[in-house]
């Protein structure tokens, strides 16, 4: 059944089922009369190519891709990362799958307890609204389905690598551009790629970006929080 949702402060129209429908319940906004983003996930044709993926997973993947593609038209983008919130700021830890993004934000939960929430564990959205960057939870959040329907001003982005010794420093230049671009959605349309690059330009000029080597010791969470927030641990 076709329903309306409010996601990243945009009205999204989609006809979905299964996992996406369940994850989208907190975003229901029936009764609205306009549509910013219409999701036509085309999951059936995706499944013809990947028959070993279930209908449910195919739809979840395709609806996410459709949403995160059109988001670029609204000064927004997805960044493959685990987003954690403390003191009213969102901090995003980005890296290729399997590096330990979620492991690191779980360390924040361990160390800071109730002061910390996970905004979205795998695919938060970012939007630039009136000159301010916000991170958002969405119905699409990776294998753990951890996401909350709220928006939080973005405090910083950290590109994470595994290391024996914990180390964090500001990250600039070609390396930062490539690493962030790598964790944004891949578009095959030059119009969307151009818009994404323009947005990345603003993001990298306006939001602090860090590079961290970290292990699984709680000390890693204290270090990243202290550096990214500019505060000492409380």
């Amino acid at each position: 059944m076709k329903r309306y949702y409010q996601i990243t402060d945009l009205i999204v129209e989609m006809d979905t089922f299964g996992r996406t429908e369940r994850q989208a319940v907190p975003y229901l906004a029936d009764g609205v009369q306009k549509t910013d983003i219409l999701i036509d996930s085309k999951w059936q044709s995706f499944r013809e190519k990947f028959p070993f993926i279930s209908e449910d997973e195919s739809e979840y993947y395709c609806s996410a891709y459709s949403f995160y593609t059109q988001l670029v038209d609204f000064n927004g983008m997805m960044l493959h990362s685990s987003a954690v919130v403390k003191d009213g700021r969102a901090y995003l830890f980005s890296a290729p799958s399997g590096t330990g993004k979620s492991t690191h934000t779980q360390l924040w939960l361990e160390v800071f307890g109730k002061d910390v929430t996970i905004l979205n564990d795998d695919k938060p959205a970012l939007r630039r609204i009136d000159g301010t960057w916000y991170a958002y939870g969405t119905p699409w959040s990776g294998k753990h389905d951890i996401s909350i329907n709220t928006r939080v001003p973005l405090g910083g982005i950290c590109v994470l690598r595994r290391g024996d010794v914990n180390k964090i420093e500001p990250y600039r230049g070609v390396g930062a551009i490539k690493d962030i671009f790598e964790q944004a959605p891949k578009y095959t349309n030059s119009d969307y790629v151009g818009k994404l690059l323009d947005l990345l330009n603003q993001l990298l000029c306006e939001v602090p970006v860090w590079q961290m080597d970290c292990n699984m010791d709680p000390e890693a969470a204290r270090m990243s929080y202290a550096a990214m927030s500019g505060r000492k641990e409380n």
Binding site: R172, I177, F181, T188, V193, G194, L197, L200
Partner: peptide, 15 residues
């Protein structure tokens, strides 16, 4: 190709 200035660098992305 898409060519853009990003954070002071000239980048090219093949699409």
């Amino acid at each position: 190709f898409v060519l853009r200035e990003v954070a002071g660098e000239t980048v090219v992305v093949p699409v």
